[in-house]
């Protein structure tokens, strides 16, 4: 976009500025709270001036730090472990969803199985199912039939299945745009279907892959309800530990905000790195139809 910007009424800039403040205000507040000691949080005075400290982060991460922070009397390993669990679950789910989703999307487009309409309809239907609805059957089946409660494999299966319809649907809209001549040329040079797919098609649809992986990662990383029902003490993910540490009274806001901040950092990084792809993923559904 190399358009020239028109000069606008300053009121518009004021409005844009106010909107930006509203959008990031709460996040900024969380950040500053996580950098404060509890004494400072509880005192009314000097909301603006305080000594930032990383103590809360040290408390949270004491288990995985290479040194022992001196202010931590007892080191609670729960969060360090949960962070590892979350990373494993989110990364593996994203990987599997992408590979499987890509192959299915390719088959749907190139071998003309179902029309676009059927696929969008299925995606919409799947989007309609709230995670709370899956709670009962997943709990029952995973515990008594698959015997996968408390394992990474169990929760990864749920996340992959939940994300597949959307990923297939978004990827096929990218694959449709790959010129078929390119594939035919590769085929004449002697490549088989798998080689064509991995060496020709995949590199072209990278932006689609980026959008799909961010959306999958976000769901697997943020999900609470099903993780809470399926996972046990040693496999719990971060959202579950956060909710478990919330008590009615006497919440250690500094520490819990540090935890929240750590959970929020990966999605924030993605947003800044790939906002264009995210917007494509969001708008593709409604605007192009």
């Amino acid at each position: 976009m190399s358009q020239t910007h028109e000069r606008q009424n300053p009121a518009f800039y004021a409005l844009v500025f106010a909107l930006v403040m509203m959008a990031i205000g709460p996040i900024y507040l969380m950040l500053t709270t996580s950098l404060r000691l509890n004494v400072d949080i509880m005192s009314d005075a000097s909301a603006l001036f305080f000594m930032p400290t990383l103590r809360n982060y040290e408390t949270v991460l004491c288990d995985v730090l290479w040194y022992t922070p001196e202010h931590v009397g007892y080191c609670d390993p729960t969060f360090g472990r949960a962070l590892g669990n979350s990373l494993i679950v989110a990364l593996i789910s994203t990987g599997i969803t992408l590979i499987v989703g890509c192959m299915a999307a390719y088959a749907l487009v190139r071998f003309r199985f179902m029309g676009r309409g059927t696929l969008s309809m299925t995606t919409l239907m799947m989007r309609m199912v709230p995670p709370a609805v899956l709670l009962v059957p997943v709990f029952g089946i995973w515990t008594f039939q698959y015997h996968m409660d408390g394992t990474y494999a169990g929760i990864i299966l749920v996340y992959v299945a939940m994300n597949l319809p959307f990923v297939i649907w978004i990827l096929q809209s990218f694959i449709v745009q790959v010129p078929i001549q390119l594939e035919e040329a590769a085929r004449i040079d002697g490549a088989n279907a798998f080689q064509v797919f991995f060496l020709v098609v995949l590199p072209i649809i990278k932006p689609g892959l980026a959008a799909a992986s961010i959306f999958t990662f976000r769901i697997a990383w943020n999900e609470f309800l099903i993780a809470n029902a399926l996972l046990d003490r040693s496999t719990r993910t971060v959202p579950v530990t956060i909710v478990n540490s919330l008590t009615e009274y006497d919440i250690d806001w500094g520490v819990i905000m540090a935890t929240g901040m750590l959970l929020a950092i990966p999605p924030i990084i993605f947003t800044f790195v790939a906002s264009k792809q995210i917007i494509t993923g969001m708008t593709a559904g409604a605007v192009k139809g």
Partner: peptide, 22 residues
Amino acid sequence: LRTLFILPMMIAPIVVGLMWRY
């Protein structure tokens, strides 16, 4: 503005609840 506007949707709902509860 659009980039910053996506942030609230990307962050974990648990964390959004936490911020607002605070």
